[in-house]
Computed example of a mutant assay.
Amino acid sequence: MIDPDTADAPLASDLTPLAAIRARIARSAAIAQRKAEDVTLVAVSKTHPAEAILPLIAEGQRVFGENRVQEADAKWPALQEAHPDVRLHLIGQLQSNKAQEAVRRFDCIHSLDRPSLLTALARAMDRVGRQVPLLVQVNIGAEEQKGGCAVADLPALLGEARAAALPVIGLMCVPPAGIEAAPFFALLAKLADDHGLSARSMGMSDDFETAVMLGATHVRVGSALFGARG
């Protein structure tokens, strides 16, 4: 029997990739008794050219994520001139000597992870005269090869950020690959709660639905929107 409540719903195959991702976010949010609009979709456009980004902008996507300052500086000025309401998030590791360029270019930085970068960002914001919201990247799986602040070092780093009056709004993580992400998302959410932070940047193409159900406020989706990296 056809369910009358879903009979007119579009089939997944009828949706664009962006519409399909938005529908999955909305469904996951509903399961968790959350509002879909409380989850920001960050379309990860790293390595993808402007011609791949323009269709998403035309469809209404306004938040994009890049990994590198240099790539963003080369690709986004013309796009943002044409679409000034687009917002850029830096989601990759940031070198301290690129802090000033990052503060000028990005509207949010997800990768604060060490005291030296904290100092560089504080100086950059003073020089540029612009306060950019920050998230602390936490090495949630204690992986030696991965960036991020150790869980044990998080209180001290947050204390330094608050002493410097930096606008830290939340935490970010990339769980270990190949194992269930849910426990790591739950831990990041608890850490954010413990420190009075509202933003949780967690979840990518393979696990964003789980992240939404566990409290993500930002999900970083690339391959599910753009396909394989260029």
Rank of each mutant, 00 (worst) to 15 (best):
G129Y: 08
M172Y: 09
T210W: 02
H48E: 02
P176R: 06
D126N: 13
N67A: 06
V219P: 00
V168I: 07
I169R: 14
S223A: 10
E51M: 08
R123P: 00
Q80V: 11
A156H: 12
L15H: 06
V212F: 04
A43I: 03
V221Y: 08
R87K: 15
R27I: 08
G65A: 04
A199Y: 00
A12M: 13
L214M: 14
A23G: 03
A165N: 14
D193R: 05
G170S: 09
Q93C: 04
V212Q: 00
A102S: 04
E51A: 12
D14I: 04
A36L: 10
L171H: 02
H110Y: 13
A7K: 11
P49G: 11
S13Q: 08
S96P: 02
Q70A: 04
R87A: 07
V151P: 00
D153R: 00
R62A: 13
N97C: 07
L118R: 01
V86P: 05
S198F: 06
L79Q: 03
A182F: 01
R68Q: 03
L112G: 02
P17E: 08
L135G: 07
F185C: 06
Q95M: 13
D38S: 15
L41I: 04
M1Q: 12
L94H: 04
A43S: 12
A30N: 08
L94F: 01
E160H: 13
D206W: 03
I25N: 01
L54T: 15
R114A: 10
Q137G: 02
A26P: 03
R229H: 15
M213G: 15
F208P: 00
G60L: 09
A163D: 15
T217N: 07
E160R: 15
Q137L: 08
T6E: 14
V132I: 13
